[in-house]
Structures are given as structure tokens and as C-alpha cells.
Amino acid sequence: MTHRVFVVRELGIVLALVLLVAVTAIVNPRFLSAQSVKDLLLGSAILAILAVGQAIVVITRNVDLSVGSILGLTAFATGSVFVAAPGLPIPVMVLIGVAFGAALGAVNGGLIAAARVPALVVTLGTLYVFRGLDYMWAQGRQINAADMPTGFLRMGTATVAGVPVLTLFAVVVLVAVGYYLRNYRSGRELYAIGSDPAAARLYGIPSGRRVLAAFVASGALAGLAGVLHAARFGTLDANAGLGTELNVVAAVVVGGVAIFGGSGSVYGAALGAVLLTVIRAGLPVLGINPFWQDAAVGALILAAIGLDRALSARIARSLRG
């Protein structure tokens, strides 16, 4: 029955998505052209990867506000590494980015475990610290597309059978994480920790270790997103990913992951990322003033939370029966 509830949540997002795409396509049929769909997929891939990482953390009743800064720092690091070693194979670069992000995530998780301070505060701090390091490193410099291998840059926009490579990255990450969370003991323990931290202690679940791992995973995925960001945009300065964290949290919440942990899925979070991207792309097509876009995203978040409350109240009632 839990699964059925999840399905209902994700179905809601899919319906909203279909409705939005349909209305937009009626107004402007070019919205569904191959190029436009490719742009949408490309645009949502990085956000979806970040949302999957964020969902892992939010499920444990924590939050990671530093993902935008980790993305920025890793993107700049990617450019710098290519400047220093132009011949580096792309897979090695991807691994370096993931490891770098994971290390930054470990800093978050370590501080939270050691200082026993809420994740909100710790990652708000590291948001500024990581971004500050980025500024210090960049010193106002910019790394241009010319400084990076063309093969790497091509990966940022290339397609396989019409599907952007970046989207394939996102799908692989999504399926792997989704499968892990549903089928492995440690994955289920993440849900247990978020559902009732006190009960998790009585069960003997190693909460500290699991939460640390969740932050490492979120950092690693933000690192991956940073490498992909470098490949896609080519031009890098210290501002890459500035302010992304709130978009990511919005995608997760819209995707039905309860902000108090314990429920929701990474599939929902990824769908949330796609929905936000489509809204930002679709509203101008519908002739809606761009100033309204943020308001629309905000309304969607409130609607998602409202739906959450209504659903849980109804489930509670029907189960008490």
C-alpha cells in the first residue's frame, strides 16, 4: 500500500507535466519539435542529478544547501585540471569530479556528525565557504571553451539516438539510486532514520554513519553535475551554479519527497526537476510574463505541500477506518 501511495504522488506530477506540455504545444506546436524536446531534456539533466542527491539527504530528515557551491567549485576544478593536463581521458575527469564532490560532501557530513548542529545551518555555512574558495581560486579569471578538449565539450551537447548524453547520465544515476534505496538494507535505513530518528536509535541503526554517507552521496552527485556543467557550458567562472540549491530543494519538494524525511522517492524528485524545467521553458511560449515564472514555481511548491497534507490526512483517516 505504501507503494501505491508513492505511485499516486508521482502520477500527480506526471499529470501536471502532461497537462503543461499539452497546453503549451497547442499554443505553439514548435514546443514539441525534436530540438525543443532535446533542449528540455538537456536543461533538466543536471537539475535532476542534483535533485536525486538532495532527495537522499532529505529522506533522512536533513537538507544540503551547499550543492550549488559544490557544483561551482567542481566545475571550475574541471576546467583547471584540463588546463593543466589537456590530454586527460574524459572518464578519468568524471571520476575526479565525483571524488572531489564526495570529499566536499564528507566535510558537510563530518561537521554535522561532529558538531551535532542541524544540517540546515552547517550546509548554509559551507554554501558560503565553498563558494568563497571558488572565488579565491578563480581570482576573477574565466576558463573558456578553448581551454578544454573538444571531445569533452561535445559530450555536453551530443546525443545518442536523439537522447542527450547528459540525460543518459541522469537516467543511469536515477535508476541506480532508486534501485538501491528500495532494495538494500542500508537504503531502507535512510528512510527509517528520517521517519523517526528516536526509533532508529532504539533499533540500533547506525544513524550517524548513514547520514554521513547520504551527504557524501549528495556531494558526489553535485560533483558529477559540476563536470557535466563544465562540458555543457564551456565557459566557466566562479559563479557557476550560483543559487541552484533552492531550485534543487524546490524540485525535491515538488516531487513529493517529504521535507521532514521518511517518504518520497528519487523518481519523484527527478520528475520534479523536469517539471520545473518545463515550466521555465513553457511559460514564455504561453506568452506569460517571465516575472510570473518564479511565482508559478512558488505556487507549485505550496500546492505540492498542500497535496502532501491532504493525502496524509486522508490516508490516516482511511487506515484508522
Partner: peptide, 17 residues
């Protein structure tokens, strides 16, 4: 001391599934 979001079966076997 149960996890409200998890299924009854998972609550019984958490950590020993």
C-alpha cells in the same frame, strides 16, 4: 517505537530483512 512511513513488514524486519 515504529517508523510511521514504512510498511508493517519493514518495521518488523528493519536491519534484518
Amino acid at each position: 517505537t515504529l517508523f510511521p512511513d514504512l510498511s508493517v513488514a519493514e518495521n518488523i524486519f528493519m536491519g534484518r530483512q
